[in-house]
Design a protein around this nucleic acid. Structure first.
Lengths: 336, 336
DNA sequence: CTGAAAGCGCTTACAG
DNA sequence: CTGAAAGCGCTTACAG
């Protein structure tokens, strides 16, 4: 900018005015400055500008894995809102690692992002308190903050699981297996709660052996499916399964493909090809785009000065019956 | 930092030394500065630091749609490399809109990102020349730059399509339909070329009516599938289809689900549930993670000062036979 | 309508 | 081992 001013033979402030389209500059001056800008190929350095203005017009998005469809659709929605608000977004994948989540969050804060949208992995977010006190707006999505009070945009996880399990019960199932993620993950715990509630509401007994909360790698999930559905495992086998997230559902589908009489199945989270399977996959769908939009809008509301108490927004789920969840129970092999 | 210096009763530079862990500070001083930092809750402002250092330790990632699995997996790979290099990444979805691509790219450049990784939508990237001259490193992925010379990391699109179509020919097909994206998109044009080459190599005649390059919304694709495969459309109907990308493949699968005698199908790009369909979906798979890694690594090589001529890296595709592409031709309805 | 001075929060290049 | 001065590229608050 200095160079432009020198070249045009004007003051620095005049260049600044022209660059920012501020009024009150003589047309001849504007012309001279414009020419100098073109000759020098000048472009305003927004980082310097924002440093002086005391904000960065950027937000940080902390997700589990950018490569996961749920996260990336949520991210896209946030990106869109940010653009409407003239903000740029930094993304960072924590890979379900609390330490990495913390490092990334603090790195973003060191860059002085205006705000943070986070799908948390960790179970203690007190490390964010100093940052929030310093004025960084923070909104949690998909899972709430732990150990601190903060805005949260969530799916009704318990309600969704209850809805899915009730659907299976309505189709005649009494022994229903549940495959979920580690219970330390909030969504996993909530969904398990929904399963228990649905069973209790229907007055059905529940055998703890029907519940598998654990690592969700395909091998483990497949082994659990076998334990739940074939003789040699739980006795009598379950006639239906509820799977707690899309990764688990994928593994369950692969396990069921090998069975002659597969149990009924409802999965939490929709999958792209779910309607093209035989039978179609019945799911409890959540809406990552709605979650992302709501989170970003809440964040910008806070940045606009909204200091109302922390909000907790909850989105309902949607049951999508496609076949797999409407299969009737087959009599247990032992009795047939 | 000024406040910390005042509080600790030391010079600004001493605080800077402690904060950055530079050697040569008396232990007692370090202690005093540390204490002041804790009391004030001070955190270094990296944006200011980087402004002084003349770089931003951030790169821009310009993709078509963060919500698309191909883009987001590629993005995740770039994120990982960037983290290894101490860089943060801004993401922006251009939504296949050249104007938006340009706006986003220039916005990133105004923030003075060190480099740009771009999956281009537009057909003229001369707007980037001034930025590249100013020192911004740019690497194109998935599609090459247009009208300018630049580094590019690509998939062997023509080779992949040729491989897929040859696979169909090997299984007895002679009339093969091709459903692709708009030919102005580089990958679409290349894949069509591969189709033509495979047909020519096999000495098969090719009817231009077998080719549908156009909008890829589901309704249009489904209509084209009907035109190609049912009587009343091309005569005689094709016995196999090659679909040019994952979005098209999805629509084709939905159209085929309604047919009693579906044609064989090979799709470009893999899909998550492809192996669970009946029959399994045969695909030409590309590797978004390898593309992303290679692009990011090339970018950082450039940032490290590598000034070798522009490079063009091409990754091979992989044919994954799963059933749909191995179906033999059924005799055309007219002859049966 | 125009511009010189001070400052955003840091680091660089020096001097002591 | 320590720190005062200048500067990164802009804007803010003023004075003319």
């Amino acid at each position: 900018m200095n160079d432009v001013a020198a070249r045009a033979g004007v003051g620095l402030k005049t260049v600044s005015r022209v660059v920012n389209g501020e009024p009150g500059v003589a047309p001849a001056m504007v012309e001279r400055v414009r020419a100098a800008i073109d000759e020098l190929g000048f472009r305003r350095n927004d980082s310097a500008r924002l440093l002086r203005q005391g904000r960065t017009a950027s937000i940080g998005l902390l997700i589990e894995d950018l490569g996961d469809p749920f996260s990336s659709q949520l991210g896209r929605a946030i990106e869109d809102v940010a653009r409407e608000r003239g903000s740029l977004v930094f993304t960072g994948s924590s890979g379900e690692d609390p330490q990495l989540e913390r490092d990334l969050a603090l790195t973003f804060c060191s860059r002085r992002v205006d705000g943070l949208v986070v799908i948390p992995s960790g179970d203690d977010h007190r490390y964010l308190l100093p940052e929030m006190d310093a004025g960084v707006a923070v909104v949690f999505v998909d899972r709430p903050a732990q150990q601190i009070e903060a805005d949260a945009v969530l799916t009704d996880n318990a309600g969704g699981a209850r809805q899915g399990v009730a659907h299976l019960i309505r189709h005649g199932h009494r022994r229903i297996g549940y495959l979920g993620d580690l219970p330390r993950i909030h969504t996993a715990a909530e969904r398990l709660r929904g399963y228990r509630e649905a069973m209790a509401e229907a007055g059905l007994p529940l055998d703890e052996a029907w519940i598998a909360m654990g690592p969700t790698d395909p091998a483990t999930v497949i082994a659990e499916v076998h334990r739940l559905t074939s003789s040699g495992g739980v006795e009598p086998p379950v006639t239906a399964l509820f799977s707690g997230n899309n990764r688990i559902t994928l593994a369950v589908l692969r396990a069921l493909a090998a069975l002659k009489q597969p149990p009924a199945l409802v999965g939490f989270d929709d999958l792209e090809l779910a309607d093209l399977l035989t039978p179609g996959l019945s799911v409890i769908a959540q809406d990552p785009i709605a979650l992302g939009r709501a989170a970003a809008e809440l964040l910008f509301q806070r940045l606009d000065g909204d200091t109302a108490p922390h909000r907790r927004i909850e989105f309902p789920t949607r049951l999508v019956p496609r076949g797999s969840g409407e299969r009737r129970p087959s009599p247990p092999p032992a009795t047939s």
